[in-house]
Amino acid sequence: MRPVHVAGMGLWSPGYADLAAWRAGTPDASVIKPKCRLVDVRLKRGSSRFANMLGEVVEQAARAAELDVRSAATFYGSSLGEIETMVELLRMLYEEEGKLSPNRFKCSVHNAASGLVSIGQGNTAFSTAIAGGARSFEATLLEAWAWLDAGEGDALLLAVADDRAPPPLDALDDHDALAVGVALTTRGAGPRLERLRVVEHAERHAAMSDALRANCASPGLELAAAIFDRREGPVALSPFGGPQWVADLVLS
């Protein structure tokens, strides 16, 4: 595939409102909910923190890249998706005699953030939502890159996130909440991803806790760190070891 440029990035995690805060390394305990200004309060009814995390990093990446969120294509990725909404609906199913909140149900689909942001911004451009388990970042980047390569557009916004799972599913995950946004363009002068390739093993360089590493969005932190640290070469696109896709980063 043809090279693509990383024109901007965004980040949200509890304690870290954006990429600069994460780089500074000092968490702010007041950061517990993303602002997500792309979606108005009325439209947000029934939406999860997860959906708002995705909207927040889309906005940040768009701002950094000077892309218009009212017209840019959007690619969303997650492993667990709307798990908080699902558990709340399960509670209603069993404890409220099956009476589900229609607003919650509407926002229970994996593409809820896609719908909310597109409606909030009046954006009729291409949008999709991907689930690839632990490899959701890799899968979402692959979809997005192939879309650019097909010439269906020259810029897009990609957002990958997982929130913590609520009880009783909290025992099944070991990750902290994290959302990463990336603006990709086919032209520009910034850092570029030269090609995708499969390797047997990829080094991970970014400093992060094991709990952040376990989030499916953590390869986005690897990419951000490589750009900040001006480290060219392969960026691991999976949180874990073993054969995986890497993207070769070139900074010139």
Binding site: M1, G81, V109, H110, N111, S114, S127, T128, A129, I130, A131, G132, G133, R135, S136, E138, A139, L142, E143, W145, A146, W147, D149, A150, E152, L196, W245
Partner: peptide, 28 residues
Amino acid sequence: GPSYVVSTACSSSGKVASSAARLIRASV
């Protein structure tokens, strides 16, 4: 090769047709 899901509710398994076409055209 890659294995993943497009999950856009009721359009999901229509949209995978374009995913396949792009991945093949891009020689992935």
